[in-house]
Amino acid sequence: MLSQGSLLKFTLGRLLATVALLLAVSFIVFTLLQLTPGDPARNLLGPRASSPEALAEIRDQYNLNEPFVRQYLLWLGGVVQGDFGDSIRSDEPVTALLANRVLLTMQLAALAFVLTLLVAVPLGIAAAWRAGGAIDRGVTTGAIVGVGAPSYAVGLLLLYVFGVKLDVFPIYGSGEGGLDRMWHLSLPAVTLAIGVGALVFKLTRTAVLAELDQDYVAFAQSRGLSRRQIRSMVLRNAMLPIVTSLGLVFAFLFGGTILVEVTFALQGIGSLLAGSVTFKDIPVVQAITLLTAAVIALTALAVDLFSFAADPRVRSRAAA
Protein backbone atom coordinates (compact mmCIF):
# COMPACT_ATOMS: atom_id res chain seq x y z
CA MET A 1 0.00 0.00 0.00
CA LEU A 2 1.41 3.32 -1.04
CA SER A 3 1.45 5.51 2.02
CA GLN A 4 2.16 9.21 1.73
CA GLY A 5 4.71 9.03 4.53
CA SER A 6 6.90 6.36 3.02
CA LEU A 7 6.79 8.03 -0.41
CA LEU A 8 7.95 11.31 1.14
CA LYS A 9 10.68 9.58 3.12
CA PHE A 10 11.88 7.66 0.07
CA THR A 11 11.86 10.75 -2.17
CA LEU A 12 13.71 12.86 0.39
CA GLY A 13 16.30 10.14 0.95
CA ARG A 14 16.91 9.75 -2.78
CA LEU A 15 17.04 13.52 -3.26
CA LEU A 16 19.64 13.93 -0.52
CA ALA A 17 21.70 11.13 -2.05
CA THR A 18 21.49 12.86 -5.45
CA VAL A 19 22.63 16.19 -3.99
CA ALA A 20 25.52 14.49 -2.17
CA LEU A 21 26.55 12.79 -5.41
CA LEU A 22 26.46 16.06 -7.34
CA LEU A 23 28.52 17.80 -4.65
CA ALA A 24 31.16 15.09 -4.91
CA VAL A 25 31.20 15.42 -8.71
CA SER A 26 31.40 19.22 -8.46
CA PHE A 27 34.48 18.91 -6.28
CA ILE A 28 36.19 16.64 -8.78
CA VAL A 29 35.19 18.95 -11.61
CA PHE A 30 36.57 21.92 -9.73
CA THR A 31 39.95 20.27 -9.23
CA LEU A 32 40.21 19.93 -13.05
CA LEU A 33 41.65 23.44 -13.05
CA GLN A 34 44.26 22.54 -10.44
CA LEU A 35 45.09 19.22 -12.08
CA THR A 36 45.77 20.80 -15.47
CA PRO A 37 49.54 21.14 -15.90
CA GLY A 38 50.86 24.67 -15.52
CA ASP A 39 49.84 27.79 -13.61
CA PRO A 40 46.03 27.93 -13.29
CA ALA A 41 46.08 31.68 -13.91
CA ARG A 42 48.04 31.29 -17.16
CA ASN A 43 45.75 28.46 -18.21
CA LEU A 44 42.72 30.64 -17.60
CA LEU A 45 44.32 33.49 -19.47
CA GLY A 46 44.73 31.30 -22.51
CA PRO A 47 46.27 32.91 -25.58
CA ARG A 48 45.93 36.45 -24.23
CA ALA A 49 49.10 38.39 -23.38
CA SER A 50 50.19 37.33 -19.90
CA SER A 51 51.16 40.69 -18.51
CA PRO A 52 51.51 40.81 -14.74
CA GLU A 53 48.39 43.01 -14.59
CA ALA A 54 46.29 40.56 -16.59
CA LEU A 55 47.47 37.66 -14.41
CA ALA A 56 46.64 39.58 -11.26
CA GLU A 57 43.24 40.40 -12.64
CA ILE A 58 42.51 36.76 -13.50
CA ARG A 59 43.73 35.65 -10.05
CA ASP A 60 41.36 38.13 -8.54
CA GLN A 61 38.41 37.13 -10.75
CA TYR A 62 38.82 33.38 -10.02
CA ASN A 63 39.83 33.87 -6.36
CA LEU A 64 43.10 32.06 -7.05
CA ASN A 65 44.81 33.81 -4.13
CA GLU A 66 42.34 32.36 -1.66
CA PRO A 67 42.92 29.09 0.22
CA PHE A 68 41.92 26.01 -1.81
CA VAL A 69 38.73 25.16 0.10
CA ARG A 70 37.53 28.77 -0.04
CA GLN A 71 38.24 28.85 -3.77
CA TYR A 72 35.99 25.80 -4.17
CA LEU A 73 33.20 27.25 -2.05
CA LEU A 74 33.26 30.56 -3.90
CA TRP A 75 33.24 28.68 -7.24
CA LEU A 76 30.38 26.47 -6.05
CA GLY A 77 28.44 29.55 -4.90
CA GLY A 78 28.78 30.94 -8.43
CA VAL A 79 27.81 27.63 -10.03
CA VAL A 80 24.64 27.40 -7.97
CA GLN A 81 23.68 30.83 -9.34
CA GLY A 82 24.56 29.74 -12.86
CA ASP A 83 27.96 31.41 -13.03
CA PHE A 84 30.68 29.12 -14.39
CA GLY A 85 33.03 32.01 -15.21
CA ASP A 86 34.01 33.06 -18.72
CA SER A 87 35.04 30.91 -21.64
CA ILE A 88 38.76 31.21 -22.31
CA ARG A 89 38.21 30.87 -26.03
CA SER A 90 35.43 33.35 -26.61
CA ASP A 91 35.56 35.46 -23.45
CA GLU A 92 31.77 35.12 -23.20
CA PRO A 93 30.16 33.97 -19.96
CA VAL A 94 29.99 30.14 -20.05
CA THR A 95 26.28 30.16 -19.18
CA ALA A 96 25.36 32.29 -22.18
CA LEU A 97 27.54 30.16 -24.44
CA LEU A 98 25.84 26.98 -23.24
CA ALA A 99 22.22 28.08 -23.22
CA ASN A 100 21.36 27.43 -26.88
CA ARG A 101 23.58 24.41 -27.20
CA VAL A 102 22.08 22.65 -24.19
CA LEU A 103 18.63 23.15 -25.64
CA LEU A 104 19.70 21.66 -28.98
CA THR A 105 21.37 18.62 -27.41
CA MET A 106 18.38 18.11 -25.12
CA GLN A 107 16.05 18.16 -28.12
CA LEU A 108 18.28 15.78 -30.04
CA ALA A 109 18.54 13.36 -27.11
CA ALA A 110 14.82 13.59 -26.38
CA LEU A 111 13.86 12.96 -30.01
CA ALA A 112 16.20 9.95 -30.20
CA PHE A 113 14.82 8.70 -26.90
CA VAL A 114 11.20 8.97 -28.04
CA LEU A 115 12.05 7.16 -31.29
CA THR A 116 13.74 4.39 -29.29
CA LEU A 117 10.81 4.14 -26.92
CA LEU A 118 8.23 3.99 -29.71
CA VAL A 119 10.07 1.51 -31.91
CA ALA A 120 12.51 -0.60 -29.90
CA VAL A 121 10.33 -1.38 -26.88
CA PRO A 122 7.28 -2.62 -28.83
CA LEU A 123 9.55 -4.60 -31.17
CA GLY A 124 11.31 -6.16 -28.18
CA ILE A 125 7.99 -7.18 -26.67
CA ALA A 126 6.68 -8.57 -29.98
CA ALA A 127 9.91 -10.48 -30.59
CA ALA A 128 9.86 -12.07 -27.14
CA TRP A 129 6.17 -12.93 -27.42
CA ARG A 130 6.88 -14.96 -30.54
CA ALA A 131 10.46 -15.93 -29.81
CA GLY A 132 11.96 -17.69 -32.79
CA GLY A 133 9.33 -16.24 -35.12
CA ALA A 134 9.86 -14.03 -38.15
CA ILE A 135 9.83 -10.69 -36.26
CA ASP A 136 12.19 -12.09 -33.66
CA ARG A 137 14.73 -13.42 -36.12
CA GLY A 138 14.54 -10.38 -38.40
CA VAL A 139 14.85 -7.71 -35.73
CA THR A 140 17.44 -9.63 -33.71
CA THR A 141 19.67 -9.81 -36.78
CA GLY A 142 19.07 -6.11 -37.45
CA ALA A 143 19.88 -5.28 -33.85
CA ILE A 144 23.29 -6.92 -34.10
CA VAL A 145 24.06 -4.61 -37.01
CA GLY A 146 22.61 -1.65 -35.09
CA VAL A 147 24.73 -2.29 -32.02
CA GLY A 148 27.83 -2.92 -34.09
CA ALA A 149 27.66 -0.06 -36.59
CA PRO A 150 29.50 3.10 -35.45
CA SER A 151 27.22 6.14 -35.33
CA TYR A 152 29.38 8.30 -37.62
CA ALA A 153 29.19 5.62 -40.30
CA VAL A 154 25.43 5.25 -39.91
CA GLY A 155 25.12 9.05 -39.93
CA LEU A 156 27.12 9.41 -43.12
CA LEU A 157 25.11 6.65 -44.78
CA LEU A 158 21.81 8.28 -43.81
CA LEU A 159 23.08 11.65 -44.97
CA TYR A 160 24.09 10.21 -48.29
CA VAL A 161 20.85 8.32 -48.89
CA PHE A 162 18.20 10.66 -47.44
CA GLY A 163 20.04 13.97 -47.66
CA VAL A 164 22.00 13.76 -50.91
CA LYS A 165 20.40 11.07 -53.08
CA LEU A 166 16.74 11.33 -52.12
CA ASP A 167 17.01 14.90 -50.83
CA VAL A 168 14.16 14.53 -48.34
CA PHE A 169 16.07 15.67 -45.23
CA PRO A 170 18.41 18.64 -44.74
CA ILE A 171 22.08 17.75 -44.60
CA TYR A 172 23.32 20.60 -42.50
CA GLY A 173 22.43 22.84 -39.56
CA SER A 174 19.87 22.81 -36.81
CA GLY A 175 16.93 24.74 -38.27
CA GLU A 176 14.82 27.50 -36.78
CA GLY A 177 11.64 27.15 -34.77
CA GLY A 178 9.81 24.05 -33.59
CA LEU A 179 8.93 22.00 -36.68
CA ASP A 180 11.93 23.07 -38.72
CA ARG A 181 14.17 22.19 -35.79
CA MET A 182 12.60 18.74 -35.62
CA TRP A 183 13.02 18.38 -39.37
CA HIS A 184 16.72 19.14 -39.08
CA LEU A 185 17.18 16.87 -36.09
CA SER A 186 15.44 13.86 -37.65
CA LEU A 187 18.43 12.20 -39.28
CA PRO A 188 20.78 12.76 -36.34
CA ALA A 189 18.12 11.48 -33.96
CA VAL A 190 17.57 8.38 -36.10
CA THR A 191 21.33 7.81 -36.16
CA LEU A 192 21.47 7.94 -32.37
CA ALA A 193 18.32 5.86 -32.00
CA ILE A 194 19.65 3.05 -34.20
CA GLY A 195 22.56 2.42 -31.85
CA VAL A 196 20.73 2.65 -28.54
CA GLY A 197 17.49 1.28 -29.97
CA ALA A 198 19.25 -1.97 -30.82
CA LEU A 199 20.41 -2.15 -27.22
CA VAL A 200 16.97 -1.33 -25.81
CA PHE A 201 15.42 -3.90 -28.15
CA LYS A 202 17.72 -6.62 -26.82
CA LEU A 203 17.16 -5.62 -23.19
CA THR A 204 13.38 -5.49 -23.63
CA ARG A 205 13.32 -8.83 -25.40
CA THR A 206 15.44 -10.42 -22.66
CA ALA A 207 13.30 -8.90 -19.89
CA VAL A 208 10.02 -10.10 -21.42
CA LEU A 209 11.44 -13.55 -22.21
CA ALA A 210 12.63 -13.88 -18.62
CA GLU A 211 9.13 -13.09 -17.38
CA LEU A 212 7.47 -15.45 -19.86
CA ASP A 213 9.63 -18.20 -18.43
CA GLN A 214 8.34 -17.60 -14.90
CA ASP A 215 6.10 -20.06 -13.10
CA TYR A 216 3.35 -17.50 -12.71
CA VAL A 217 2.85 -17.46 -16.49
CA ALA A 218 2.42 -21.25 -16.64
CA PHE A 219 0.14 -21.03 -13.62
CA ALA A 220 -1.94 -18.30 -15.28
CA GLN A 221 -2.26 -20.42 -18.42
CA SER A 222 -3.29 -23.46 -16.41
CA ARG A 223 -6.07 -21.40 -14.80
CA GLY A 224 -7.40 -20.49 -18.21
CA LEU A 225 -6.57 -16.77 -18.14
CA SER A 226 -6.90 -15.09 -21.53
CA ARG A 227 -3.88 -14.11 -23.60
CA ARG A 228 -4.71 -10.48 -22.97
CA GLN A 229 -4.73 -10.98 -19.19
CA ILE A 230 -1.46 -12.88 -19.27
CA ARG A 231 0.16 -10.27 -21.52
CA SER A 232 -0.76 -7.45 -19.17
CA MET A 233 0.55 -9.45 -16.19
CA VAL A 234 3.85 -10.12 -17.96
CA LEU A 235 4.30 -6.53 -19.14
CA ARG A 236 3.58 -5.17 -15.68
CA ASN A 237 6.44 -7.31 -14.36
CA ALA A 238 8.80 -6.73 -17.29
CA MET A 239 8.27 -2.96 -17.07
CA LEU A 240 10.62 -2.69 -14.09
CA PRO A 241 13.83 -3.90 -15.81
CA ILE A 242 12.81 -2.15 -19.05
CA VAL A 243 12.42 1.25 -17.40
CA THR A 244 15.74 0.81 -15.60
CA SER A 245 17.47 0.21 -18.91
CA LEU A 246 15.63 3.15 -20.50
CA GLY A 247 16.98 5.39 -17.73
CA LEU A 248 20.53 4.33 -18.49
CA VAL A 249 19.90 4.87 -22.21
CA PHE A 250 18.64 8.42 -21.72
CA ALA A 251 21.66 9.35 -19.61
CA PHE A 252 23.92 7.79 -22.23
CA LEU A 253 22.14 9.66 -25.05
CA PHE A 254 22.63 13.04 -23.42
CA GLY A 255 26.34 12.46 -22.89
CA GLY A 256 26.92 10.57 -26.12
CA THR A 257 25.92 12.99 -28.85
CA ILE A 258 29.45 14.13 -29.76
CA LEU A 259 29.99 11.98 -32.84
CA VAL A 260 26.54 12.66 -34.22
CA GLU A 261 26.79 16.41 -33.61
CA VAL A 262 30.11 16.52 -35.42
CA THR A 263 28.83 14.38 -38.30
CA PHE A 264 25.74 16.55 -38.81
CA ALA A 265 27.46 19.85 -37.95
CA LEU A 266 25.09 20.58 -35.08
CA GLN A 267 26.02 23.22 -32.51
CA GLY A 268 25.24 21.17 -29.39
CA ILE A 269 27.17 20.61 -26.21
CA GLY A 270 28.88 17.52 -27.61
CA SER A 271 30.70 19.41 -30.30
CA LEU A 272 31.36 22.25 -27.85
CA LEU A 273 32.90 19.83 -25.39
CA ALA A 274 35.12 18.34 -28.07
CA GLY A 275 36.39 21.81 -29.04
CA SER A 276 36.80 22.97 -25.46
CA VAL A 277 38.86 19.98 -24.41
CA THR A 278 41.23 20.54 -27.33
CA PHE A 279 41.48 24.22 -26.41
CA LYS A 280 41.85 23.58 -22.65
CA ASP A 281 38.81 25.86 -22.15
CA ILE A 282 38.49 24.69 -18.57
CA PRO A 283 35.41 26.64 -17.42
CA VAL A 284 33.39 25.27 -20.35
CA VAL A 285 34.59 21.72 -19.74
CA GLN A 286 33.67 22.07 -16.07
CA ALA A 287 30.19 23.31 -16.88
CA ILE A 288 29.43 20.58 -19.44
CA THR A 289 30.81 17.82 -17.21
CA LEU A 290 28.76 18.95 -14.25
CA LEU A 291 25.66 19.36 -16.39
CA THR A 292 25.99 15.85 -17.83
CA ALA A 293 26.48 14.45 -14.34
CA ALA A 294 23.36 16.28 -13.19
CA VAL A 295 21.28 14.84 -16.05
CA ILE A 296 22.54 11.33 -15.26
CA ALA A 297 21.86 11.71 -11.52
CA LEU A 298 18.37 13.11 -12.10
CA THR A 299 17.52 10.31 -14.53
CA ALA A 300 18.60 7.78 -11.92
CA LEU A 301 16.43 9.59 -9.40
CA ALA A 302 13.45 9.40 -11.75
CA VAL A 303 14.01 5.66 -12.31
CA ASP A 304 14.19 5.10 -8.54
CA LEU A 305 10.96 6.97 -8.00
CA PHE A 306 9.34 4.97 -10.76
CA SER A 307 10.35 1.64 -9.26
CA PHE A 308 9.11 2.86 -5.89
CA ALA A 309 5.72 3.54 -7.44
CA ALA A 310 5.60 0.40 -9.58
CA ASP A 311 7.16 -2.30 -7.37
CA PRO A 312 5.52 -3.13 -4.04
CA ARG A 313 8.69 -4.94 -2.93
CA VAL A 314 10.74 -1.75 -3.27
CA ARG A 315 8.10 0.13 -1.27
CA SER A 316 8.20 -2.42 1.51
CA ARG A 317 12.01 -2.36 1.63
CA ALA A 318 11.93 1.45 1.78
CA ALA A 319 9.46 1.35 4.64
CA ALA A 320 11.53 -1.18 6.60
Binding site: D215, Y216, A218, S222, R223, G224, M233, R236, A310, P312
Partner: peptide, 24 residues
Protein backbone atom coordinates in the same frame (compact mmCIF):
# COMPACT_ATOMS: atom_id res chain seq x y z
CA UNK B 1 -7.14 -27.81 -24.18
CA UNK B 2 -7.32 -24.02 -24.07
CA UNK B 3 -11.07 -23.75 -23.57
CA UNK B 4 -11.01 -26.35 -20.81
CA UNK B 5 -8.15 -25.06 -18.69
CA UNK B 6 -9.32 -23.46 -15.48
CA UNK B 7 -12.99 -24.33 -16.04
CA UNK B 8 -12.71 -28.11 -16.30
CA UNK B 9 -9.17 -28.85 -15.16
CA UNK B 10 -6.59 -26.81 -13.30
CA UNK B 11 -3.02 -27.17 -12.09
CA UNK B 12 -1.41 -26.22 -8.78
CA UNK B 13 2.36 -25.81 -9.01
CA UNK B 14 5.14 -26.68 -6.60
CA UNK B 15 6.66 -23.37 -5.70
CA UNK B 16 4.28 -20.81 -4.18
CA UNK B 17 7.13 -18.27 -4.17
CA UNK B 18 7.20 -18.13 -7.97
CA UNK B 19 3.73 -19.21 -9.08
CA UNK B 20 2.12 -15.85 -8.28
CA UNK B 21 2.94 -12.55 -9.97
CA UNK B 22 5.02 -10.55 -7.47
CA UNK B 23 3.55 -7.14 -8.36
CA UNK B 24 -0.16 -7.98 -8.35
Amino acid sequence: MSGLRGRRISLLLQNPFTSLSPVH
